[in-house]
Amino acid sequence: MDRKIKVLIAKPGLDGHDRGAKVVARAFRDAGFEVIYTGLRQTPEQIVNAAVEEDVDAIGVSILSGAHNHCFSEIMNLLKQQSIEDILVFGGGIIPEDDVKFLKGIGVSEIFGPGTPTDDTVKFVRANLKKDN
């Protein structure tokens, strides 16, 4: 059996728009992944803690409120502090091009904007896993 891929889907900050996160979670499940959904209103600390406890391969962050630069920075900092280098971090939501550049600069592997087919996201995760299991 192919190795099981585990992804954390997180909604940081106060944003309650979860249509995208839920659709992606379901698509991942249909692709055979194990998805841990954090629920709404998570702090970056809670997100990273969950990623550690569940030993996930990837963290997918969904954010539509404009607070993405802050949220992603916090998450990447926490991962760095704990010397975690083998978790793939990606995101989606309403994030302008300029900010995508910034986010990739701090270690976010990819941002999937509005209109991205879920299959693309599934393929990306499969192809970019860092944990060697």
Binding site: G13, L14, D15, R41, T43, L64, S65, G66, A67, H68, N69, H70, C71
Partner: peptide
């Protein structure tokens, strides 16, 4: 903005990065 919608002030830690954004 989201903090007001959620009944928290702009200086609440949960509001970091969200103030005035949406």
């Amino acid at each position: 903005h989201l903090p007001t919608l959620m009944g928290v002030d702009s200086d609440n830690p949960l509001s970091r990065g969200e103030v005035g954004k949406d």
